[in-house]
Simulated scan of single mutants.
Amino acid sequence: MPRIVRTRPRSGTTSGTSTYSSILAQVKEQGLLGRRIGFYWALFGALIGSLGVVWAAFALLGHSWFQLIVAAALGVLFTQFAFLSHEAAHRQVFASHKWNDQAGRLLGTFLVGLSYSWWMNKHTRHHGNPNTVGKDPDIAPDTIRFRPEDAAAARGPLRLLVRVQGYAFFPLLTLEGINLHWLAVRSVVTGAATKADARHRWIEGGLLTARFGIYLTVVFWFLPLGMAFAFLGVQLAVFGVMMGASFAPNHKGMPVLAHDAQVDFFSRQVRTSRNIRGGWWVSFLMGGLNYQVEHHLFPSMPRPALKQARLLVRDHCATLDVPYTETTLVRSYGIVVRYLNEVGLAARDPFACPLVAELRVR
């Protein structure tokens, strides 16, 4: 079950500021916050080249059901471009804020079909208060519920789903691609994430219109109607599963902080984050998000430096007796499924489980 943490500073302990300053000094001393422009240009070039190969295969295959393989490949590539947009949003790519924003918006909005402004708004709040009740939008109640209180409040057909939400989580991710595109369009139409800058709203509206217009025209023009819909279904399913499966293991099942918890920055970020072991292939598949602890401590750190920072942070945590959580990818998925199912118990009968009642925030 989720543990609601109400931490307050203890007298006689090292201050949160000095705790973080110490590890930050070590990171700076080893030059781990320096830009890695060469890495990002090489990655971008490889992805663009791969995109060209995939579209060439699309043109050559014609009206063949092997096009579904092309669709799956596109789902993988769009996810990788989304990771690059995420890194640009965190100022990991360029030293210039303007260049990062332009790159993030071009990659995320035009190539992938997401609203860069909406993502920035939501993700910034998550980074400031990960797993914090009422502050982290990533644990706010939605189709999936992340706290017993929210699970117990579910009504109608949703309540039936929440009861088995752990088992339903990964199947539901096949719809996440559609959801992300819908949120992007809705954000631009309503101006929800760009009220402070109407210019960005118009830019993103134009980029989204061009993106969906070009993409859908190509698919439906060159493929028979049924095959075109199947193509889109596979591409969106792969994209949704890869996006959700990359972000979910990082915080789900970790301690949940009460709204008024007084926790220093270092402890807040480390205690609520989980790293994923597995080497370079996991780092590629997850866009560097497998080093979630380090990413939260140093959001602007380039992807290649996160592996080196991990050794410093892990030793620092051992010195301070702060839990440093790390597991395999498969085991993390098991943790997520079990956690969501345990939360879902509250949707069955919130009074039948003493543990649920005990863990409620009062």
Results as ranks from 00 to 15, higher is better:
residue 270 V to Q: 13
residue 276 I to Q: 06
residue 228 A to D: 06
residue 274 R to V: 05
residue 292 Q to Y: 08
residue 295 H to Q: 05
residue 251 H to N: 04
residue 240 G to M: 05
residue 287 G to Y: 06
residue 307 K to F: 04
residue 281 W to C: 06
residue 216 L to H: 11
residue 258 A to T: 13
residue 225 L to F: 03
residue 289 L to R: 14
residue 227 M to G: 02
residue 263 V to N: 00
residue 213 G to Y: 07
residue 287 G to I: 12
residue 300 S to E: 15
residue 261 A to W: 02
residue 270 V to W: 04
residue 301 M to F: 07
residue 275 N to F: 07
residue 265 F to T: 02
residue 321 D to E: 15
residue 288 G to D: 10
residue 238 V to L: 07
residue 311 L to C: 07
residue 263 V to F: 01
residue 293 V to C: 04
residue 279 G to V: 01
residue 275 N to K: 14
residue 314 R to S: 10
residue 264 D to Y: 02
residue 217 T to E: 08
residue 312 L to G: 03
residue 302 P to A: 10
residue 258 A to H: 13
residue 259 H to D: 13
residue 227 M to R: 12
residue 228 A to V: 06
residue 272 T to Q: 05
residue 311 L to S: 14
residue 228 A to R: 14
residue 224 P to K: 02
residue 242 M to Y: 04
residue 284 F to I: 11
residue 318 A to Q: 14
residue 228 A to G: 10
residue 306 L to H: 08
residue 259 H to Q: 11
residue 230 A to Q: 05
residue 245 A to Y: 00
residue 295 H to I: 00
residue 227 M to Y: 01
residue 213 G to D: 11
residue 238 V to K: 07
residue 311 L to A: 15
residue 214 I to V: 15
residue 317 C to M: 11
residue 221 W to Y: 13
residue 268 R to P: 03
residue 259 H to S: 12
residue 258 A to Y: 06
residue 263 V to T: 14
residue 294 E to C: 04
residue 275 N to Y: 08
residue 301 M to G: 09
residue 260 D to S: 13
residue 234 V to H: 01
residue 218 V to R: 08
residue 280 W to T: 02
residue 213 G to N: 13
residue 321 D to H: 15
residue 305 A to M: 10
residue 300 S to G: 15
residue 241 V to P: 00
residue 305 A to F: 06
residue 255 P to H: 06
residue 227 M to E: 07
residue 308 Q to H: 09
residue 213 G to M: 10
residue 253 G to R: 04
residue 258 A to D: 15
residue 254 M to H: 01
residue 283 S to W: 01
residue 283 S to C: 11
residue 227 M to T: 08
residue 262 Q to W: 02
residue 234 V to Y: 01
residue 252 K to I: 06
residue 283 S to T: 15
residue 274 R to E: 04
residue 232 L to C: 07
residue 255 P to S: 04
residue 293 V to P: 05
residue 277 R to L: 08
residue 214 I to R: 13
residue 242 M to H: 03
residue 299 P to T: 11
residue 251 H to F: 01
residue 277 R to M: 10
residue 247 F to T: 12
residue 213 G to F: 07
residue 237 A to Y: 01
residue 228 A to N: 10
residue 309 A to G: 09
residue 217 T to G: 12
residue 266 F to A: 01
residue 240 G to P: 12
residue 236 L to N: 09
residue 305 A to N: 15
residue 259 H to I: 02
residue 274 R to W: 03
residue 277 R to T: 11
residue 315 D to P: 09
residue 226 G to S: 14
residue 230 A to W: 03
residue 313 V to L: 10
residue 232 L to E: 06
residue 243 M to H: 05
residue 304 P to E: 13
residue 294 E to G: 06
residue 279 G to A: 00
residue 218 V to S: 08
residue 298 F to A: 08
residue 288 G to L: 04
residue 224 P to G: 00
residue 255 P to F: 00
